[in-house]
């Protein structure tokens, strides 16, 4: 009797496992299919794409990539985006950590209000600042200025970063700083030499997310950048897809080129991202 139940259960478990595998493989297919089609199409001629989008390329042509780079200046726009994303990430980390250090380690009464002030920043939707920031940029002659764009991105990542860093630092024992202070450590070196290394997991994960957001941001880049020399990659791709809508192959190639840096970063850091997310620290 007991044996039959055991067998039945085993049988059930096996069916369940098979179902799980089927679902898992199905969603893997769903995820990779569009990516694979895009990559394959980027090597095909226009005629071949119209004939059958999903076929294997008869031969792998690199013309699409050459043309995308020539017409849309793909590499330059990717470089622009990489510059913007890296500087945003660095600035956010430095400025955010400095603020978080004070908020977490000092006891002044006004800090409560400063913290509240940053938290209000989380609630402001980015888009309602579009027009004033556009005016500000025109007034300061800061259109087509990558640094101004970076400052905007830094502002909109700030609250989230400070919130995360402060939370994390609050969890670090103060014994660590007290020992350092007795050793004559200044605020600056206490933050960067002692606390920063301890905060690395949260900083790294948040940095990756800030980087992705900065690399692919669209709205501000649309209003701030009017000269195609300074287009970021998202802006340039959209522009290219509407002005050269007939050159399908080139567009596929541009999309593939644009995601290469992100995929590389993902391959390098996916463990860090998963660890950060699974610890429940990062929530959007």
């Amino acid at each position: 009797m007991a044996e039959t139940i055991g067998k039945k259960n085993k049988h059930k478990v096996r069916t369940a496992t098979v179902v799980l595998y089927i679902i898992a493989i199905f969603w893997t297919f769903m995820t990779l299919f569009p990516v694979a089609v895009t990559i394959l199409a980027s090597f095909k001629s226009k005629a071949e794409i119209y004939l059958n989008l999903m076929s294997w390329p008869k031969e792998f042509l690199i013309e699409n990539y050459i043309n995308a780079n020539k017409t849309a200046d793909a590499l330059r726009t990717i470089t622009n985006s990489l510059i913007v994303a890296s500087l945003t990430t660095v600035a956010n980390t430095v400025v955010g950590m400095m603020a978080a250090y004070i908020l977490s380690r000092k006891d002044y009464k006004f800090l409560k209000f400063v913290y509240l002030f940053f938290m209000i920043g989380v609630m402001v939707p980015v888009h309602c600042t579009l027009i004033p920031i556009n005016n500000l940029a025109t007034g300061l002659n800061a259109k087509n200025n990558l640094f101004f764009l970076i400052l905007i991105y830094v502002a909109f990542n700030m609250s989230q970063a400070i919130f995360l860093y402060t939370g994390f630092m609050d969890g670090i024992s103060r014994n660590l700083d007290e020992a350092a202070i007795i050793d004559g450590c200044s605020n600056w070196s206490l933050l960067w030499r002692i606390l920063f290394p301890v905060c690395k997991p949260i900083v790294a994960t948040e940095a990756i997310f800030i980087f992705i957001a900065g690399y692919s941001e669209l709205v501000f880049s649309m209003i701030m950048m009017t000269d195609s020399k300074f287009f970021t990659v998202s802006r340039a791709m959209l522009n290219f897809s509407s002005t050269h809508s007939q050159e399908i192959g080139n567009q596929f190639a541009f999309v593939v080129m644009s995601v290469i840096p992100m995929v590389l970063i993902y391959i390098l850091f996916h463990k860090q991202i998963e660890k950060g997310m699974l610890s429940g620290a990062i929530k959007g």
């Binding site: 893997t28 569009p34 692919s216 995601v259 993902y266």
Partner: peptide, 26 residues
Amino acid sequence: TCYFLPCMLGTTAVALMWTFMLNPNF
């Protein structure tokens, strides 16, 4: 790792990819 990939690609790239997939002509 595979399932998380799409949100690394950037919104515009994803949007364009699917716009191409859904194009009525090709």
